Simulated scan of single mutants.
Amino acid sequence: MSQQIRGLERELGEALFYREPRSVRLSPAGEALLPHARAALSAVAAAQAEFAARSGLLTGDLGVGTVDGAHITALPDVLGAFHRRYPGVSVRLVSGTSGPLLSQVRTGALDAAVVARPRQSPDDLEFRTLLRDEIVAVVPHDHPAVEAGRISLAALADTPLIGYGSDSGLRPHLEEAFDTAGAAFRPAYTANDVALQIALAAAGAGIALTPAAEVVGDSVTAVALSPAIPYEKALAWRRTPAPAAPLRAFLALHEEAGR
């Protein structure tokens, strides 16, 4: 391998590594080559998977990004069925927030990702809805809004809020809804961890704005917002190039399950 690397360095005219007595690290030339090397390896793996699929024995890798709350979608069930049908495919799950995960889908670092669907779906990505939900206010049981059964966004303007950070896919939904209601969205606490949001609300730190489907806990109540803030969790993948065999098989299995 060392000889092959040195041969490549001679061909490129630059050293790819700094070789130190007890370590080896990439040089600037190595850093520049790295994404191209990864793309080449990915292309080889995709070709191998494609021909394995033609022979009826699917192999290869499937990289899927997941945001918080992906566990309440159909993803776990579909991945379970996928493993039983295609045990030769290695599945890699990567946790994160919607923006960075979509960037990895665009570069090919991930095959697909479960994200909060953007308000305006970008043209370079395909989306398939996994869950339709809405954001609710999470308050202690004795909060006045519980009896009313609903709370307006305007009424929340001067209330300490617990919401999502700027890197969350749900943050734009909240900002747009508050702006339309004539109020500014300025959370006192930001956290992308729903369990932490709910714990803060239970402790009296403020009102948490949280997906309805994820509200659990004996010490809090979910109250509807007015106007409602709907959103979708969706599976996203690149339009081009065409999905590799493992992703095609996963999408077909998801559609087959009617989810």
Score class of each variant (00 low, 15 high):
37 A>D: 01
38 R>Q: 14
38 R>I: 12
39 A>G: 03
40 A>S: 04
40 A>W: 10
42 S>R: 15
43 A>T: 12
43 A>I: 01
44 V>R: 14
45 A>N: 13
45 A>M: 08
45 A>V: 01
47 A>V: 06
47 A>M: 10
49 A>K: 10
49 A>F: 07
52 A>Y: 02
52 A>W: 04
53 A>S: 14
54 R>T: 08
55 S>Q: 14
55 S>D: 14
55 S>A: 15
57 L>E: 15
58 L>V: 06
60 G>N: 09
61 D>W: 07
61 D>I: 00
62 L>H: 10
62 L>Y: 09
64 V>H: 03
64 V>Y: 05
66 T>R: 14
67 V>W: 08
68 D>P: 01
69 G>M: 07
71 H>Q: 13
71 H>C: 00
72 I>D: 12
72 I>K: 05
74 A>V: 15
74 A>W: 11
74 A>E: 12
75 L>W: 02
75 L>A: 09
77 D>E: 13
77 D>K: 06
81 A>I: 03
81 A>S: 13
81 A>Q: 14
81 A>V: 05
81 A>Y: 03
83 H>M: 08
86 Y>C: 02
86 Y>H: 15
86 Y>K: 04
87 P>V: 07
87 P>A: 07
87 P>H: 03
88 G>D: 06
88 G>R: 03
89 V>A: 04
89 V>C: 09
90 S>Y: 09
90 S>N: 14
92 R>S: 12
93 L>Q: 13
93 L>A: 05
95 S>H: 12
96 G>N: 06
96 G>E: 05
99 G>H: 07
99 G>Y: 02
100 P>E: 04
100 P>T: 02
101 L>G: 11
101 L>W: 11
101 L>T: 12
102 L>D: 02
102 L>F: 00
102 L>N: 01
103 S>K: 13
107 T>C: 08
109 A>C: 00
109 A>D: 15
110 L>A: 11
113 A>Q: 06
113 A>V: 09
114 V>D: 05
118 P>Q: 08
118 P>M: 07
120 Q>C: 04
121 S>A: 15
121 S>C: 11
123 D>T: 03
123 D>C: 00
123 D>H: 11
124 D>L: 02
125 L>V: 04
125 L>Q: 09
126 E>W: 01
128 R>Y: 03
129 T>C: 09
131 L>D: 05
132 R>P: 00
132 R>A: 06
133 D>H: 11
133 D>G: 10
134 E>Q: 15
136 V>A: 11
138 V>H: 08
138 V>Q: 08
138 V>A: 15
139 V>N: 09
140 P>K: 07
140 P>L: 06
142 D>G: 00
143 H>R: 09
143 H>Y: 08
144 P>H: 09
145 A>G: 07
149 G>I: 03
149 G>V: 03
150 R>E: 14
151 I>G: 08
151 I>L: 12
152 S>V: 02
152 S>L: 02
152 S>W: 01
153 L>S: 09
154 A>E: 12
154 A>W: 00
154 A>H: 08
154 A>D: 04
155 A>E: 15
155 A>R: 14
155 A>W: 03
155 A>Q: 15
155 A>I: 03
157 A>M: 02
158 D>T: 13
158 D>A: 15
159 T>H: 11
159 T>N: 02
161 L>N: 09
162 I>R: 10
163 G>C: 09
164 Y>P: 00
164 Y>S: 03
165 G>E: 13
165 G>R: 12
166 S>P: 10
167 D>G: 11
168 S>P: 04
169 G>V: 06
